[in-house]
């Protein structure tokens, strides 16, 4: 799977994402600078974590207007699979490719720790066989508090668009629980069509023996499976 990882000024998980897809998962992965206007022959697009444009104005608000984002929008419109991790999730929400928004953590702290995720409803392909499973995946963000209006939340539930939830607060070891106050403990979602995915936790930081876990591998494999199932005709 030819994977394009978009590199914005201030991205800092871009190389981790390339490593996860190319090293740990054996795919072809490369960086594309945000000033580019074409994704070339990419079959999967990843918007990585970091602090694009210094998080100025709002997280992801400026990156969504980078030249490459027009191509990313067209790629998604054509059914191409896009994964946004952390800042990438924020960019996708700002760009309107995913519903809702990510605001300041309720605790006001930057939270950098490994949390427990439950694999939730997730459409026909995304982690379907792992529903209910618990994963340990790192988070590192100050603004990961997912917010959506009641109608939007109801639609996410109804359409099985919630990919992962944090453990609810006061349900277990507190360091493993919802780190940011996210509504309905949402850690990751997809769009209704099922080709745009966003999550605050970092699966690309959970692929090696020296990482806190290797639970990112099945997550990224699910993204690859989605891309293999729904990618647009790659005739270029």
């Amino acid at each position: 799977m030819k994977t394009a990882v978009i590199q914005f000024p201030g991205s800092n998980c871009d190389r981790d994402a390339v490593h996860a897809f190319s090293g740990a998962l054996g795919q072809t992965a490369r960086l594309i600078w945000h000033k580019e206007t074409s994704l070339d022959d990419a079959e999967l697009v990843v918007l990585p974590g970091g602090f694009s444009f210094g998080d100025y104005l709002r997280c992801g608000a400026i990156a969504r207007f980078s030249p490459i984002m027009r191509a990313v929008g067209e790629f998604a419109d054509n059914g191409g699979v896009v994964l946004g991790i952390c800042n990438g999730f924020q960019v996708l929400c700002e760009a309107g490719l995913l519903p809702g928004a990510l605001i300041r953590n309720e605790c006001l702290e930057f939270r950098c720790r490994t949390v427990e995720l439950r694999v939730e409803d997730a459409g026909p392909f995304f982690n379907r066989e792992r529903l209910g499973e618990r994963l340990l995946v790192p988070v590192a963000h100050g603004e990961g508090n997912y917010l959506i209006d009641p109608e939007g939340l109801e639609a996410l539930r109804r359409n099985e668009q919630i990919l992962f939830r944090y453990l609810p607060r006061n349900s277990g070891p507190s360091l493993l629980e919802n780190p940011n106050g996210s509504i309905d403990d949402i850690a990751g979602i997809r769009n209704r069509r099922g080709n745009v995915f966003g999550m605050m936790p970092h699966p690309e930081r959970a692929v090696e023996a020296f990482h806190p876990s290797r639970d990112g591998i099945p997550v990224l494999k699910a993204v690859l499976a989605a891309a293999a199932g729904t990618r647009p005709e790659v005739g270029v």
Binding site: L57, R58, F65, C93, E94, G100, A101, L147, I148
Partner: peptide
């Protein structure tokens, strides 16, 4: 488009 996010 830019200065505010109408969602929030």
């Amino acid at each position: 488009d830019l200065l505010s996010n109408p969602v929030i």
